[in-house]
Design a protein around this nucleic acid. Structure first.
Lengths: 137, 137
DNA sequence: TGTGTTGTAATTAATTAAGTTACATCTTAA
DNA sequence: TTAAGATGTAACTTAATTAATTACAACACA
């Protein structure tokens, strides 16, 4: 299993909002054409990005704008905004507490899983939207 | 979405095989009691671990044994053995090639996603089964 | 007021995980 | 030689999640 495509879509959307700022009104329909998914998918993602304070969405009139300097938006911010279940791995739910292994498996494995997740997050945090914008050109 | 619990189950199973070596025959039924899942789940995971050369499984008579020194088995080895779809994130499939963002989104985002995955893998690679065995005690 | 947009709910289809049943095949001991 | 117990694997089921889609109330502005 993998994380959903919401992360790649959200990153795409933010790049498009920046790129087309001033030239086109970034409505959900407009963005949906660039990403090539249903506009409702875009609206849901815009809603999550707005709740995290990454963008403004003009209700009624329509159109989205960045709410922050692209230098201040990291891939980790985007990830947190759109993925609610952030645990990297599922864990078997009921290891046998009467078994010396089952009793302690969480104690020894949880910190390792946590470390792996933090390593991934640190990697995402090291890239900003600003860097991607430069690479787009 | 997340990776399946196969990883935590496989790690649990390997620890149990080591811990009970010589004391109990580690059949799928025995292991299933420790992990508290269906024996068929265990058999499928044992099969994957065997294909990766991490264990021997005695067909017919039954029972599993480690095929390597626990020092030589990392969490990354276990991860690779049981997770086939290893991409960390899905990606929206058809970004619009006629859009300057859609045309280049893969080019700029793929390396970042790859870096995040490699960071996670490096973290998993840094822990061996041997270390977990010591911590169990 | 009419047009176009957002926000959100509800439905559907596809994918996957995990549990379960079933059974052919294999190994050993009686 | 056969019976018991185990593995390997297929098939089916249930539940969860993704993504697409339809629908519509609420909103802003010309």
């Amino acid at each position: 299993m993998q994380y959903s495509s919401r992360f790649s879509i959200a990153t795409h959307v933010l790049l498009a909002i920046y790129t087309f700022d001033g030239q086109y009104k970034c409505t959900s329909r407009f963005l949906a054409e660039s990403v090539n998914v249903n506009p409702v998918i875009i609206r849901n993602i815009l809603s999550k990005l707005q709740k995290e304070g990454l963008i403004y969405v003009a209700s009624g009139i329509g159109g989205a704008k960045l709410a922050k300097d692209p230098k201040e938006i990291s891939l980790l911010d985007i990830f947190h905004a759109v993925e609610e279940k952030e645990d990297l791995f599922r864990f078997h739910e009921h290891p046998n507490p009467d078994c010396p292994v089952g009793k302690n498996i969480h104690k020894v494995l949880d910190p390792r899983i946590d470390h792996a997740k933090k390593a991934m997050e640190a990697s995402l945090a090291s890239t900003t939207l600003s860097q991607l914008i430069k690479e787009l050109a």
